[in-house]
Simulated scan of single mutants.
Amino acid sequence: MNHRAFIASTLVALSTATSAAWAAEAAAPEITTINLAGREVPVVKGGLYDRFRSNPPLSVIAAEAPDVDLSWFKQLKKEKVDIGFESYSPNFYYKNSRVTAIFTADLAKLKELMPAKVREQVQPLQVWPGRGLIALTAYTYRYCDNDSYNEIGLSVVTNRPGSTSFGPFTLMRQSMSDDFWGYVLKLPVNTELARVRGVVGYNLPKWLTDITFKETDKSVVVEIFDSETKKLDVTLETQKLTDLSSKETLVTNSFTNVDQKGQLTTGYSVSRQLSHASSSSAESVHLTLTDGSLSAYIKALKLGKLVKYEYVPDFQGALYSPKPL
């Protein structure tokens, strides 16, 4: 390469790198700080939460996201609530996706991890002797009242509070009615806004860490990093199933837990599934664990057979504030 060509190629490379840096800087949202439940919380400046505190008019959503179908949300009524801070219930999630892997797990360990007060009302479902069920779900909320964030749920599948558990028959009944109950063990998120709202307002075991979603033509890859070491902790790789159903399905997921006053509470969310598919093939899910803290926790559950995998690339949601049980 002659001297002139070398200079030209260098200038092109520098220009490309500078443009990429400028683009990245321009794409990064400006952050402001708000007071939430006595805490200083960073939020997207001018974002939905900064402007409306969980109560944006649907006309604003329609203007900012004209591709989102708001017909379902128009049927739901928000009410002002005090959940440790002023908010509105339900919280709306307009455009989201998730993957869920349900495994068998050690029943004795699941019982051990649930508070005694909770076990007085609900028990892990026993699908066969010594084995219960654990659900590992990765959510990406692309557009919601809390702006956008990623979340990982690790939950014990339980019976409804106060009802008798008949193991697999109870699971079958919940599946047929799309009405599921659980106890949330872990719920890491990647924004401080989601963490504070979840811990203070919903009594959920949230902490802040990096969570990334990557998609290829055939798979969804979720990476969860250790909040202390910052190293890759858990990787969940799942197949993009092709036999997608566009039949609208409403699914209710309820949870029982203990609030900050030691009282039993229950809350729930409703999901409007717009695109979904499921599989029981072990080939559809690949879970990679390391020596990180969440990996160690999952290893202690002694996961077994994959019972069901759910691929839901398009759903909407409404999360209701918890109430005394």
Rank of each mutant, 00 (worst) to 15 (best):
H276T: 13
Q273K: 15
R272L: 06
T288I: 13
R272N: 09
V285M: 02
V285L: 11
V270W: 02
S280L: 14
G262C: 05
G262K: 04
T290N: 09
Y268G: 14
E283H: 05
Q263A: 09
S271M: 15
L287P: 05
Y268M: 11
T288R: 12
H286E: 12
Q273N: 10
A277F: 01
L264T: 08
R272Y: 09
H276N: 12
T266Q: 06
A277I: 13
S271G: 09
L274I: 01
E283A: 11
S269F: 07
A282W: 05
T265G: 05
L289H: 03
S275V: 07
S284Q: 14
L264A: 00
K261H: 14
Y268K: 14
S271V: 15
L274K: 13
S281Y: 06
S284G: 12
G262D: 12
S280E: 15
H276M: 12
V285C: 01
V285D: 00
S280R: 10
E283W: 14
T290L: 08
Y268A: 08
L274D: 09
A277E: 03
S275D: 07
Q263C: 05
S284N: 12
V270D: 06
S284H: 08
S281P: 03
V270K: 06
A277C: 01
T266N: 10
Y268S: 12
T266F: 10
S278L: 13
T265C: 09
V270P: 08
T290C: 10
S269Q: 11
S278P: 10
S279G: 02
S281D: 02
R272M: 07
A277G: 09
V270G: 00
S281I: 01
L289P: 00
H276Q: 15
L289R: 00
R272D: 06
T266H: 06
V285W: 10
A282H: 06
T288W: 03
T265N: 12
S271N: 15
T288P: 09
R272C: 03
S271I: 14
R272W: 13
T288F: 06
H276I: 06
Q263F: 01
E283C: 02
S280T: 15
Q263H: 11
A277M: 05
A282G: 01
A277Q: 09
E283L: 06
K261E: 08
S281T: 11
L289N: 03
R272F: 11
T266V: 11
L274S: 09
L264K: 00
K261I: 06
L287S: 12
L264E: 00
L287G: 02
S280D: 12
